[in-house]
Write a protein that binds this DNA or RNA. Structure first.
Lengths: 141, 141
DNA sequence: GTATTTGCAAAGTTTTTGCACGTGG
DNA sequence: CCACGTGCAAAAACTTTGCAAATAC
């Protein structure tokens, strides 16, 4: 996805290009993974010109437009991340909350056949595999 | 997991065997997949002797003990299910919310190598892969 | 100019917590 | 008995909504 493409995507849907939308998108790009609250906090450090409601509304819009994606890395609060970088899945440790990113191609190679057998097309960018990392698994024994 | 084993599991952790815990467990077994609210509603049809707080507390306890598990089939509200049946993962369609169950062994065969390469032990019973089923994928084209 | 977007405040939903009473072992 | 568990009500955490004012185009 090209730079500045987000501006066209907004316009294509009849949406307007506002500072708030630009700030939220920039925050997501910077934070990589963030809850709505964290996005709000990040934007606030740069400007007062935003409200938490707007963050929610903007995240929803950007998600609909495919400019960002969200996954559930914890049991509560969705985590948003950029869709402009390469698509990736997450391995999330229940013990220490470490998250390991796995490139789309590796995950697709693993899951593709199984999914295809069910006629299913996985959304790899949304996928979180919960479990235990090596250290926490060892500690749990 | 044997029948009545749940009673021993409770006791082993120094927990007591209460009617509420039995009711919640029975509701999960019956409903197969249920949010805390749904569990509460089901239990209420059988008895007034429970409170929503207790449902939350009990679900958490049973989950800790491994008697039930929870997954995130929708963006909101965790869904609990029995851990006494065979462990399975879910393919969840974003379009029509259909859920396809995939046995643990099939999923493990697909993901095992990738996960092991990261020293990661997936919790297959918790895994939900979001995406589009065949029909919704076709409709989206 | 005007339709969209925002800020604000209020309400909605879901989940957690404190504490006195009840109860299983 | 008495430590653990429950009910109740209140609070906390998170998200959505209505409406008037502001603003992108």
């Amino acid at each position: 996805m090209g730079d500045g493409d987000w501006q066209e995507r907004l316009r294509a849907g009849g949406h307007r290009l506002t500072p708030q939308r630009e700030l939220v998108l920039a925050a997501i790009e910077k934070l990589e993974h963030a809850t709505p609250d964290e996005v709000y906090a990040e934007v606030r450090t740069r400007s007062d010109a935003i409200n938490l409601s707007t963050v929610y509304r903007t995240l929803e819009l950007l998600d609909d437009l495919g400019l960002i994606r969200h996954a559930h890395l914890t049991d509560r609060a969705p985590t948003y991340h950029s869709a402009t970088g390469h698509e990736h899945s997450h391995l999330v440790c229940r013990g220490c909350h470490a998250t390991i990113s796995v490139g789309r191609s590796a995950m697709e190679k693993a899951l593709g056949e199984l999914a295809a057998g069910h006629g299913f097309r996985p959304d790899y960018g949304h996928l979180s595999v919960f479990g235990l990392c090596a250290e926490c698994a060892a500690a749990a024994e």
